[in-house]
Amino acid sequence: MPVPKVGILVFPGSNCDHDAYHAFKSVLGLDAKFIWHKETDLSGVDLVLVPGGFSYGDYLRSGAIARFSPVMQEVIKFAEKGGPVVGICNGFQILLEAGLLPGAMLHNQDLRFICKDVHIRLETTQTPFTSSLEKGAVFKIPISHGEGNYTIDPVGLQELKEHDQIVFRYCNAQGEITEETNVNGSVEAIAGICNRGRNVMAMMPHPERAAEEILGNADGKHILEAIAEQIG
């Protein structure tokens, strides 16, 4: 059986593309390939990974320009056909701008760029990316963003809840959600969501940066393994 292939998009300014490549290929043993933003061929790709970074320098708004790149037009078609797409950090912002996920990202409430380990709690196993994990599981995962303050209108929020689309929330090590644990001020402490079709998921924290013991934290490996199971 051929080894599943993860297609990792590369925009000018992507900087977690190599981390993701290393994590999927060397740590998880999948096949992986980079896809330059001007390419339009996704054939042979089993999962599209939109990595973190500062695509197009975050000019105008994070993800706003990347969303119109040639490769993203193909990713939109891929997602509409049910293909699995995962976004991390800037990838989340790009998928929001592309309309593949609902809502938008504001500047962090305290206006600071936050780069530190946080805890996140898994809110649903009803996605192909999280079905092998345990609901309520807590992971220590680093965040690294200036615009991760997730916002959505009240009607949209209600829909997210009704359709069980909130995948991760910021919490403390015990899994409790308090005002202090909501690091960036996101609505309902949302750290990750999926679309209604459940084939597009994105999160602000970086599991690919914490997937090996040698890096001091392998919690992210559990999340990446769960994502990989979807195509395995």
Partner: peptide, 8 residues
């Protein structure tokens, strides 16, 4: 289309 994000 581009200059504003009408979600926010």
């Amino acid at each position: 289309k581009l200059l504003a994000n009408e979600v926010m």
